[in-house]
């Protein structure tokens, strides 16, 4: 690989970054963690002679390496005085804060004054939330955003939003409740919840046996199980035991509804694999808020 190492962060050449970007992009949806691609470019490059350009490049690398984490990727672009960074597990806001910190650091260390005040660089940030965008398109859009940011008096950062939109994710929801009326109440409550990038696929079951006999819980989708503790045939705890025995049991998020509010019961439920313990009667708005929070936290 045509890359050189400086401290611990390797600098990848533009021709090799494509493979790394493809790998990281594919992992975005599976891990539900966004990445951000940042392009940094020096304005009015013609002002600098070749020696100054070399010096400026070295200074920028030093500062970038000081700010980057081991999980981030620094890459060199074919154009002079342009750099690229892929920030893993980071969204637009984290990338923006990263640029601000970089700018503050360069001002503090006097690099800005050395090459002109204010230090003339702009950045383009592209948050990646799906795996549809191609690297070349991303680079073109980022360069477009760089040139817009350069002419915009509001600030030195431009944003690329085409790769940010997440694909609607299908999440399975199972309601295990023997009371038909309350089961319908739950279904209506869930159907009224609105999410931009989540599609809830809801099914209900009369008891644990009907649920476990179905092939509904076998797929790899994230699966929210809302179960009563007392059910005919197989009860809620038996369902939890069965689900937690499965090899991919991490996909299940279990809400247990019960009338038992003793601390010992709660401890036993949590230790058996329940994620959220809801004592009946409960506030339905509070439950909806808890569920929303769980779904929002899937992408972090």
């Amino acid at each position: 690989m045509n890359s050189k190492f400086f401290r611990d962060i390797p600098i990848i050449s533009e021709e090799h970054i494509l493979n790394i970007f493809t790998l990281l992009k594919a992992n975005v949806v599976r891990s539900r963690k966004t990445i951000s691609v940042v392009l940094i470019s020096v304005l009015q490059q013609e002002r600098y002679n070749p020696d100054q350009q070399m010096e400026l490049t070295q200074q920028m690398y030093n500062h970038l390496k000081a700010k980057l984490r081991q999980t981030d990727v620094l890459f060199q672009l074919d154009r002079l005085l342009e750099w690229g960074v892929i920030l893993s597990h980071s969204g637009e806001e984290e990338a923006k804060a990263f640029i601000q910190r970089l700018y503050e650091e360069m001002k503090r260390t006097g690099v800005a004054g050395e090459f002109g005040d204010p230090f003339p660089f702009v950045a383009a940030i592209a948050e990646i939330g799906n795996n549809d965008i191609e690297f070349d398109d991303l680079m073109n859009e980022s360069r477009q955003a760089l040139s817009e940011a350069a002419s915009w008096p509001g600030g030195p950062i431009g944003f690329v939003r085409s790769g940010k939109r997440r694909k609607a994710e299908r999440i399975k929801v199972s309601i295990l409740e023997s009371n038909e009326i309350f089961k319908d109440i739950f279904r209506m409550s869930l159907q009224n919840l609105r999410f931009d990038d989540i599609q809830l696929d809801i099914r209900d079951f009369r008891d644990g046996l009907e649920f476990l006999d179905s092939d509904w819980y076998g797929s790899s989708h994230t699966h929210i199980v809302i179960t009563n503790d007392i059910l005919p045939r197989k009860n809620g705890m038996e369902v939890v035991y069965a689900l937690r025995q499965m090899p991919n049991n991490g996909k299940f998020i279990v809400f247990m509804m019960t009338k038992r509010n003793a601390e010992e019961d709660m401890i036993a439920a949590y230790e058996s694999g329940v994620d959220h313990y809801i004592v009946k009667p409960f506030n339905i708005r509070l439950f909806e808020s808890q569920l929303k929070r769980v779904l929002v936290r899937l992408w972090s």
């Binding site: 009371n179 309350f182 109440i185 509804m257 009946k280 009667p281 409960f282 506030n283 339905i284 708005r285």
Partner: peptide, 11 residues
């Protein structure tokens, strides 16, 4: 219907 709400919901 009412009893289903009263037994399960506290709003």
């Amino acid at each position: 219907i009412f009893l289903s709400y009263l037994m399960n919901v506290s709003d």
